[in-house]
Amino acid sequence: MPRPIPIPDDLSRPFWDGCNERRLLVQYCTYCDRKQFPPEPDCRECGWHFHLTWIQTTGRGVIIGSSVTYDSRIVAWHDQQPYLNAVISLEEDPVIHFHSNLPGVPVHDVPVGAAVIVDFIEVTPGQLIPEWKLA
């Protein structure tokens, strides 16, 4: 199904390029030893951009909760309603979150607390986005 396609910008391009290599990257401040996602111009802790880089995550996470969308504001999604919206917490740093539609999981039977691993799906030729599946 056609879904909205992320448009990379200067700040986000490394993340989306990483996805295209099937690597899940997040911003990392080497000074604060702190991960940050989504990316920001500066580290929110120290306020500097000098120490910001990108690191690869394990790609392992946990489902921390969900909702089911019945009446989306995003018109492209209307055909898929009702659809599942889960939130994934990164295993090595649970304050880092990702979205997932958990393909294949029944919308009303989401195993909250279950382990998931990242996968990548193509939204348009040349652009992969992270998706998650039960581990």
Partner: peptide
Amino acid sequence: AEGLSAPGAAQWSSPWGWGLS
């Protein structure tokens, strides 16, 4: 939100249909 383009903040949410969810 119309269309299939997700720039700016929408790049982090619209591909998964996140909103009032």
